[in-house]
Design a protein around this nucleic acid. Structure first.
Length: 106
DNA sequence: CAGGTGACATGAG
DNA sequence: ACTCATGCCACCT
């Protein structure tokens, strides 16, 4: 883990949790989507889905980190602060081959 | 140090 | 089925 994210500017300024979350999100394979809860768990803070959101929101590496591959547990896109906004995110995900949220839900 | 915020999750009404 | 309310954890002021 920890590809070359440590080479990013200010990376050293982030907290461990931040780095972990960003690393996990960055590791998400193309065409796959991860839930906030899952990312939080992978980061070592199970149930910290909200914290993950805070991290994404503040994420300085917006286009670098595939934060658009992070969706809610319900399968909904949730929020996205980027160039194209949710519209771009939805399109991007569809392009990647990710099925939107027709998940049966719980 | 303490309080407030938020890109979530789950349950109950 | 939908909306409201509470809990969780980390970050920011």
């Amino acid at each position: 883990m920890m590809k070359k994210l440590d080479a990013l500017p200010g990376w050293n300024n982030l907290t461990h949790f931040q780095q972990k979350v960003l690393s996990v999100v960055y590791r998400i394979p193309k065409g796959e989507v991860r839930t906030y809860a899952q990312v939080a768990k992978s980061s070592g803070r199970t149930g910290a889905a909200r914290a993950v959101g805070s991290v994404m929101k503040m994420n300085p590496y917006a286009p670098f980190i595939p934060c658009h591959r992070v969706v809610r547990s319900d399968g909904t896109l949730g929020y996205y602060s980027g160039k194209g906004g949710m519209g771009g995110k939805k399109k991007l995900l569809q392009k990647e081959g990710v099925r939107l949220y027709p998940i049966s839900k719980r």
